[in-house]
Design a binder for these strands. Structure first.
Lengths: 231, 231
DNA sequence: AAACACATTAAACAGATGTTTGAATATTGT
DNA sequence: ACAATATTCAAACATCTGTTTAATGTGTTT
């Protein structure tokens, strides 16, 4: 049946995404995967020709979703603002899209965990696809939006700015994920909360606060480094 | 012999640090480790009571070195400036210490690679030690130095600022490491270089440019968000 | 020199790993 | 309804994993 044919493949992809994000590629056995997806152990080799390939398809699928969502959101902003968005609005979209994809998704922490693992040595075969399909389009669209907001900015200045912004985003996401890991170690958790109080709130509050901070921090930096030339 | 007793242990630690940073904990077998260190396979269990423990000792050793270097550098700055450093100087020290530790070390990419792996799920038992021995002291000293530079800043504002700075540092280091991985894939490398030209330079030039950018970006942000109250 | 604790060694261990097999079952096209 | 194709399944495969063993070597102490 056509529906079932996708069913096992799809159940495998879902289970894999969740498990890989949670425990890491090397720490998930095919048998564990098969059990979680309620399929036979041979299914992963039958449908994906190996564990490695399954991993590739998992992150590719998630990347495409994330990319399209971000591109659409940037597009919407440009039309809504008649091509003249604010820097804060553009940055806000980038932050929110990443936060949602990383902390909301099915299984709570899927996208950025996967991406972090993808970034590790040993998985560099996927790096090419990742840059071509994910980084390049999103970065291009983001750059155009920022330039629409600040026509004076040069390409190289933009490279630095976006790197600083993305770096902050990933770091704040990582902090939340680490916070979750430390639930089992109350003493360490307390130390972490003392050093970074915002982690004491709920996920949605944390997301809001982080978003607002990155926007304020980054726009202030941009304004300070490259003052807007308003005639 | 006393000298040799340390020799195998030390060779094992060195080999482990390099291999773990390069390939990741799970992707290095004890036999591989033993071969690299030119010791017997049983040595790691004899001296470290297991692979996991060896990993702990490896990152603990590196963390202590890194922590002490950073604390000393911050201390020096405070005495040199009679307790009144500039924000840019304080940030500069944090950035430079991280860049050196991450990109210079023996085996080229040791410290931050290890730290990134340590941050992964499954190694949370070390997270407690990490926060108590590494994050807390460095963050405390860094905070005091920043407050010495900007007496008006509140603790919570400091939390956000330092998170943004550390996030940038880690991200720029990660970019350089990923750039190295892509040497074998010229096409992807070219895409990466087009999106982020600074990676086209040498490591030392990259470090300098990154340091300068983070300092400028972050001080501009701080100045913009929390204007200095100069009477 | 004998006794001692420590270190190194090659070999073996038990278990988990990814993958393959070949038969059984289900789905499809005609 | 029948043949052809696609999928599922339990079992077996070879290999690699971390760890242990028991024997041998090494330097120090008595």
């Amino acid at each position: 049946m056509t529906e079932d044919r996708q069913s096992t493949k799809c159940r495998l992809l879902d289970a894999a995404e969740s498990l890989f994000a949670e425990k890491g590629f090397e720490n998930v056995s095919i048998r564990e995967l098969a059990a979680a997806a309620e399929v036979n152990v041979a299914a992963v080799n039958y449908h994906f020709q190996g564990k490695e390939n399954l991993f590739h398809e998992v992150i590719l699928r998630r990347f495409v979703i994330q990319r399209d969502k971000t591109l659409a959101a940037l597009d919407d902003l440009l039309t809504e603002t008649d091509g003249h968005p604010g820097v804060d609005q553009v940055i806000g979209i980038l932050v929110r899209q990443h936060m949602e994809g990383a902390l909301a998704g099915p299984g709570s922490a899927s996208f950025l965990s996967l991406m972090a693992r993808q970034m590790q040595p040993g998985h560099s075969h996927m790096a090419g696809t990742f840059f071509k399909e994910m980084v390049a389009p999103v970065y291009g669209s983001f750059s155009r939006a920022i330039i629409a907001a600040r026509p004076g900015l040069k390409q190289e200045q933009l490279s630095w700015i976006s790197a600083s912004i993305v770096g902050q985003i990933h770091h704040f996401i990582m902090r939340w994920q680490k916070r979750q890991d430390l639930e089992s170690d109350p003493e360490s958790l307390q130390i972490m909360l003392r050093a970074f109080p915002p982690l004491g709130f709920s996920l949605s509050e944390y997301s809001e606060q982080v978003t607002e901070h990155i926007i304020r921090f980054s726009t202030a930096a941009i304004d300070g480094m490259y003052p807007e030339v308003t005639p």
